[in-house]
Design a protein around this nucleic acid. Sequence first.
DNA 1: CTAACGATTCGCT
DNA 2: GCGAATCGTTAGT
Length: 200
Amino acid sequence: MKSNRGTILPRSFYEREDVVEISRRLIGKVLCSKKGNRFTSGIITETEAYCGRDDRACHANDGLRTKRTEVMYGPAGHAYVYLCYGIHHLFNVVTNKENIADAVLIRGVYPLQGIEIMKQRRNNTGKSKPLTSGPGMLSEALGIKTSDTCTDLTEGPIWIEDHDFKVDKSSIRSTPRIGVEYAGEHAKREWRFVTDQFIN
DNA sequence: CTAACGATTCGCT
DNA sequence: GCGAATCGTTAGT
């Protein structure tokens, strides 16, 4: 774990048809943002897959097409950012082909670059307070807002890089997704992926 | 127009 | 461990 720069993931990375596999493969990649000349990044440690068909946990389930979910029906590799609980901005990446609404929620990153900026945005005055270990927290730390929805992740100002960090396959656990009990049986699917490889 | 409800986080008990 | 905060989205009147 030493490189400072990576390759921006190409659209083809996001165009795969299996959103669960993309979710798994995003673990270890690096989420970056450059807002007003302030660069921040973190290694993705936790993701969740959401499928537009037969998945009651997904906002676009059963082809539900609204102003909010429209971006999920667009081409892969764009950001879907929405407001949760009136407070938190949750960041997803749109996957699969146009008109097929799949997405991966980024739930956690390991702070890599711009840590002071993240602490500032999080109003974290050096105290031992989680910085980027939750979907709302990481968006705040990286300066990602709902106005960033539809951002093309192959262009920026938000993008994902491959730094060639090798993630030990055995370190990636799969579990049911968080906070989607309303999805009934679908909530039991193990579509959440998390690694503890970068915890310290 | 109205109302119910979150893909969460934080602070306090 | 529990509950409040907080407001855009959604569906229904």
